[in-house]
Design a binder for these strands. Sequence first.
DNA 1: TTGTAAGCGTTATCAC
DNA 2: GTGATAACGCTTACAA
Lengths: 340, 340
Amino acid sequence: MAGRNESNRSITNVAALANVSIATVSRVLSGKRTKDDDIARRVRAAAEQLDYSVNYAASALRSTITNTIGLIIPSATETFSAQLLDEIEPTIDVDSQQLLLGIGADQEAQGERMASLVARHVDGLIVVPAAGADLTEVLERYAGTLPIVQVGGRQRSFHTSMVGLDENAAMEMVIGHLADQGIESVAYMAGKEISFESAELFAMFHTQVRAHHLRTQPDWNRFGERSVQRGFDCAMRLFSEPLVQPEAVVCADDTIAFGMMVALHALGLRVPQDVLIVGYNDSPIASTTMPTLTSVRPPFQQIVSEALRLIALGPERPAHISLPPRLIIRDSTVVPNGSR
Amino acid sequence: MAGRNESNRSITNVAALANVSIATVSRVLSGKRTKDDDIARRVRAAAEQLDYSVNYAASALRSTITNTIGLIIPSATETFSAQLLDEIEPTIDVDSQQLLLGIGADQEAQGERMASLVARHVDGLIVVPAAGADLTEVLERYAGTLPIVQVGGRQRSFHTSMVGLDENAAMEMVIGHLADQGIESVAYMAGKEISFESAELFAMFHTQVRAHHLRTQPDWNRFGERSVQRGFDCAMRLFSEPLVQPEAVVCADDTIAFGMMVALHALGLRVPQDVLIVGYNDSPIASTTMPTLTSVRPPFQQIVSEALRLIALGPERPAHISLPPRLIIRDSTVVPNGSR
DNA sequence: TTGTAAGCGTTATCAC
DNA sequence: GTGATAACGCTTACAA
C-alpha cells in the first residue's frame, strides 16, 4: 500500500525524489538513456518507491506513440480469432503495450472499427478479415497513416502487410499424409464458392491429388459454408447412397469435419477404419472429439510475432509473409494396425 | 477524401471555421451545451467538413475520462468469455468507447492485467474471474479508484459490483423441465470440488431434486473439471456397468455434456430416448451436436448492459445483481413421441 | 549527459 | 452562454 497517494503519481515527484530533472526521469524510464549508472538506479528506485507509472495519455499526446495495438476480428466465437487473441495478448503485454479490440462481423462493421481505432492513434493495426469482406478501400485509406497487417484471408492491398498461411505447403502435408496411410481416393469440402481463395485452395488440392497419384471425383468435391450442419449434410449425401465413395475427406474447417464425423457415425461408418477425416484450423475441440481429429494448425505464435515485427517496422515497408502450418496428426487419420 | 489534411485535425481549426472559440467547440461536441441553435449547427458542420474527431489522448489528459473500458477474461477460447466479448464490443462502441482487452488464465496474470488497465485509467473494469482465482485482494485495492464489475464467479468483494446468474432459478428451470419430461432419477456433474460455488450449486441441485420428487444417488454425482474428457470418463463409469443408472444427467458445462454424449453413443445408449442430457453455458456448438443439446444460456445482453450501467454509476455505489438465465430446450431432453 | 522550457490538444475555470 | 486562459503530465529540442 506504499505510495498510493494520488498526488505522488507524477514524473515531477519521481524527479524530486531522485534529485534529477523530469527530463532525465523520462529518458531513463523510456530507455532513451544508455548508461546504467547511479543516476539511472536512483531514478528507478524513486519510481518504484512512489509506485509510479507513466500517464499514457500525456505520453501519447506529446509523442504520438500510444503503446496500443488495435486488433480487428470478425467474432470471438470463431476459433481462429480466439486462438489468435489468446496468443497475441500476452505477447503485446510484454512490451507494456495494450490491446484495443474491435469486432466486426462484416465488411462495413470492420471498416467502422478500423476508423475508430485509427482515430485512437493506435501504433499498429492487425486485421482478420471477415469471410467475404473486401477491405481494400479502407486498408488503402489508412495504409500511409499507420502500419497495418492483414492476417489470413486474401491479400488485396500492396500498401499494407500481410501474414498468411502457406496453403500449398498445408495441402501438400495433408494429401501426403493421407497417401502415406495407403488410401487411394479423397474428397474435398471447400469453403465458399464465391471466394477466390477457395478456388485457389481447390486448385492446390487437385495438384496434390495428382502428385500423389490419388483419385477424386467432381461430384465428391463441394463448395459451401464452414459449419457443422454443412459437414453433416454433405456426409449424408456422400456416404448414404451405394455409390463409389472416397476413402478420405479433407475439410476446409474443423466445424465441417465435426459435422461429417457425426453423420458418419450415424451411418454406421467408422473413422478412421472406413473413412479418414482431416480438418483445418485445429480448433480446441479437435483434440476432444471421438476419434480425435487430425487438423492443420496455423502457427499462431509465428503469426503473432511476424505481425508485431511488421508493425514495428512502420507503414513504409509493407511485406507479405507466408508461414507453413503444422499438421497435427490424431486418430481420425491413423488406422489401427490391420483393422482396415 | 475531403479534409484529410493532418493539420486540419485540431479543435482550433474547427473553431476558426465555425467562428467560435475552442471552448464552445468542446462544449458542443461533448454534449455539455444544451441548446441546439445556429451555433451548435455551425460547429457540427465545421467538424464534419474537416473530418474532425477528438484527440482522445488530449481529452484524457485533461479530463481523466479516457472513453475506454477494460475487460479481463481468462481466455478467448472459452465460450462464455467469447460470447461476452461478441456482445460487449458493439454495445460499448455505440458510446464511442473502446475496449481494452486483458487476458489472464490465472489469478496472478489477471492481477497483472488489472494493474495495467488501471494504469491506463480505463473508465471502468469488467472482470471474468479465471476458474479458481481469488481476486479479492486486487479488487479491493482498486475498488476506490474506478468502478469494477465482476461477471460470474463468486463475489468476494463488497466494494466492487457483481453481475451473476441466478443459479437457483437456473437449477429450478433445469430440474423442472426434466421432471416435466417424466423422468424419475437424475445425476449431476458438478464443477471443481474445491470451489465454494460448486458446492452451492450442488446444494441447489439437491433442493430441486427433492422439490420435484426425483431420485438421485451420491455415487452418481461428481465434482471435476469442466472438460470433454471428464464428461466422457464419467459417462463411461456411470453407464458401462449394469448398476442402477440415472435417466438424466445435468452437467455444469456444455463441454462435459459433449463428452457424455460421445461416451453414451459409444456405449449404444441413445440421447434422449435412454438418457436426457442438459448442458450449461449454451456454447455455439450446442445447437450443432447430434442430438442438439439442451443448455442453460446466460443472458449475455443483460449481463453486458447491467455491467456497463454499474460502471456508469461510478465506484461509489457497488451493487450485486443476479440475472435469471434462459433454458434453451433442444433435442437432448425432448423424447420423441412414445419412443421411450 | 543534463537541465530548461516549449509545446502536444483538450477541458475546466473564471470573468464577462 | 461565451471566450480567454490555465492546466493536465509528458517528451523533446535546445542550451548549457
